[in-house]
Simulated assay, not measured.
Amino acid sequence: MADDKSKRDFRDRDRVSANDDYEVEYFVQKVGLTSQQVRELIRKHGNARETLERVAKALKSG
């Protein structure tokens, strides 16, 4: 089921949905990883945007 774009609040911005291609692609462009890598990070670490950004930064630098 797709997100209801009319209902936006802080909760939607805190998460990255692996089921929504546009959210994955936005995150891919932001952190410089592949969509497969982003989906794997979501699977391993959950979908909290702050956590994913921290892990992605560590992955790119390490």
Rank of each mutant, 00 (worst) to 15 (best):
E25S: 12
G46M: 14
K7R: 13
V16C: 09
V24Q: 06
E40K: 14
A2C: 07
Q36S: 11
S6H: 07
S35A: 15
R11G: 02
V28A: 03
G46E: 15
R49L: 09
F10L: 13
Y26G: 13
Q36D: 13
D21P: 08
Q37G: 00
R15V: 05
A56P: 03
A58W: 03
Y22T: 15
L33I: 11
G46N: 14
E53F: 05
N47A: 02
V16P: 06
V31D: 00
I42V: 06
E53W: 03
L41Q: 04
S17W: 10
R43E: 13
D12H: 13
V28M: 08
A18L: 08
Y22A: 08
K7F: 08
V24H: 09
A58F: 04
D9N: 15
V31A: 05
E40T: 13
D21Y: 00
S17K: 12
E50I: 02
R8I: 02
Y22W: 13
G32Y: 07
A2T: 11
G46T: 06
K57N: 07
V24Y: 00
M1E: 08
S61L: 11
K57E: 09
K57T: 09
E50M: 13
A18C: 08
E50L: 10
Q29C: 05
T34S: 15
Y22N: 03
R54D: 04
R43D: 08
D21A: 12
K60T: 01
S35V: 02
E53G: 04
V38E: 01
L41F: 04
R49D: 01
K30F: 00
A48I: 13
F27G: 01
L59P: 03
E53I: 00
V38F: 00
E50F: 12
V31E: 02
F27E: 00
V16D: 01
Q29T: 14
N47W: 03
E25R: 15
K7M: 09
Y22P: 02
R43Y: 06
F27D: 01
K30G: 02
G62E: 09
T51Q: 14
R11F: 10
L52P: 01
E40C: 04
T34L: 10
N19S: 11
D3P: 04
I42G: 00
E25A: 11
S35W: 04
Q36G: 08
D12Q: 14
A18Q: 10
G46P: 04
D4T: 06
N19P: 05
D4C: 10
R15Q: 05
N19V: 10
F10Y: 12
T51Y: 12
T51D: 05
V31K: 02
E23R: 14
K30L: 13
S6T: 15
Y26D: 13
G46Y: 10
D14Y: 15
L41G: 02
S35Q: 14
D20M: 14
Q37P: 01
V38N: 02
V55H: 06
Q37E: 15
L33H: 11
A58L: 08
S6F: 06
Q36A: 12
E50C: 07
D21Q: 12
